[in-house]
Structure formats: C-alpha cells, structure tokens
C-alpha cells in the first residue's frame, strides 16, 4: 500500500497529464467519428455572446457591400415576380406551404480547418432546430447542428462530415456532395454514374432526395471530373457559387415535411 501511494505521489504530474490527455483524446476521437458534441460548441451562452458583441462592432464596416448584395437579390426576385406568366391569385394556404424561411447572420465563420462550423445569431427562441438547411441567395452554406437559446452552430459544407444530396441541374442524376478538405472554393460530388454525360461548367443543384433543402438550390459549377478508383463513378470537383470566406446574411430553411418523411422512412425500415 505504502508503495502504491509513493508511486502515485512520485508520478502525480505524469498521471495528471495522462488523465487530461485521455479526456481530450476521447473528445477528439469522438469528433472524428460522430457529430459535434451537444454541449461542447460555440453556440453556448458565453461564446455566443462574445462573438455577437464582436460581430455588432465589425458589422458596420461592410454595410455598404452587404446592402448592395441584398438589393441585387431583391432586384432578381422582383424580376421573377413581374415576369411571371400566369397571373393567378396567390393562394396563401398553410396546407400549400412546404418550407418556412427565417433569416440570420453569421457571427463566426471558419474555413481553414478540417471540420468547419459556423455560428449564427438565431437559436431555439427563433424556433431554429437541428437539421435545418442554411442558404444564401447564391447557394447552400450548411446544416444546423446544435442550438442554444439565442445561437446555433452550423455544419458548413466545408466539413469532413458534410454529406448532402445533390444533382446535375435539369437531370435526375444525383450523388453526394462531400469535401476533401483541400480547398475552400471547391467541394466534391461523388457517386454520379459513368454513363451520365458531363460538361465542364454544368450547374450542380440540391437534389430532391434531401429532406433538409428544397430541390434546385444552386451549389456550384463543374470544374473538373474524373472517374474514381472503381472506374464506375465520377468524382466531380464543384466550384462553389458562394464565397465561403465572405458570407454574412443567411436564410434558414425549415422543411415542414421533414418529420413526416423521417417517420415514414423509419417505419418502412422497421417493417422489413
């Protein structure tokens, strides 16, 4: 017994180090294989408020360019509205609504890591929930991962874990959108069969398989494509429409059908 106590006393610093290292290694390995931790993220009260204060100061510096972007988007939407062909009455019936949109602002951006997360200044109080889509006028940004009262973290498309259903515009060939962590301007579209005719410059949009994003939200254009190792599927480099280094105003898309779809899918699996 005496010897054990002596051992503990002599190596107490080493044991402390091992203990702390094991804790952090546990967290790290968990983050490699699972989603972000529920408590361990920048959406919590303290970090959220510090980021928000910093955002409130810095937001004034690029109001001009942000306003210009928003006016441009309004212009485009007005153009669509005025040139609409069939002037039927717009029916505002809740039964017809599949998606609701709310707006938010990015208060923390990152794109240099392997697993990038953004923080937005909307949370549970604004009825933001996990697995809502986040987009800008140009294209998709990511998916809401964790929420606190006033803030939420968003898993960026520039994240190893990111996996979004996408397709080639005007066709029904769909694949998965992933990121190989190399460049923040390109993501990869995989699992597109070899027989699909591809051209550099083709547009990639979100697919209908996703229960998170509406169909046909723009993502980017084809930059380059190669066959993968099995020689049956293409790996396509997609250059993003969004400049991920400079995003501020975002829209959060809530799919009202999502719960029903998920429920149905789990029931189908259970019945098998």
């Amino acid at each position: 017994m005496q010897q054990i106590i002596n051992f503990l006393i002599r190596y107490k610093h080493f044991l402390l180090y091992i203990l702390l290292m094991l804790i952090s290694l546990g967290f790290t390995i968990q983050s490699h294989s699972f989603h972000q931790s529920k408590f361990f993220n920048s959406a919590n009260w303290l970090t959220g408020n510090i980021y928000n204060t910093s955002f409130n100061i810095s937001t004034y510096f690029d109001l001009d360019t942000e306003n210009e972007k928003l006016v441009k988007e309004n212009k485009r939407l007005r153009h669509l509205l005025f040139n609409k062909k069939n002037e039927t009455q717009i029916v505002l019936d809740t039964a017809n609504i599949r998606y609701t949109i709310s707006s938010g602002q990015i208060i923390k951006n990152s794109y240099a890591d392997q697993r990038n997360y953004l923080t937005i200044n909307k949370g549970k109080k604004d009825s933001i929930k996990q697995d809502m889509g986040v987009i800008t006028n140009k294209g998709i940004i990511g998916i809401v991962e964790n929420t606190s009262g006033k803030f939420a973290t968003v898993q960026s498309i520039l994240n190893e874990h990111s996996n979004i259903n996408a397709k080639i515009k005007n066709t029904n060939h769909f694949g998965s959108l992933v990121w190989n962590t190399k460049s923040y301007t390109t993501v990869q579209l995989i699992d597109i069969p070899k027989l699909v005719p591809l051209h550099i410059g083709d547009t990639i949009v979100t697919g209908a398989m996703s229960s998170i994003f509406p169909e046909n939200i723009p993502i980017g254009t084809i930059k380059k494509f190669d066959l993968d190792r099995s020689e049956n599927f293409y790996t396509i480099d997609v250059s993003l429409f969004n400049d991920m280094t400079n995003v501020k105003n975002v829209y959060i898309v809530n799919s009202l059908d999502r719960e029903e779809i998920l429920e149905l899918e789990s029931e189908t699996i259970n019945n098998d």
Binding site: L25, T28, S31, F40, N41, L46, S110
Partner: peptide, 8 residues
Amino acid sequence: FFSDTMAL
C-alpha cells in the same frame, strides 16, 4: 469552445 474544435 470558441473554435468548435472539440479538444484539439
């Protein structure tokens, strides 16, 4: 906590 990097 701030940079969402778990415990790196």
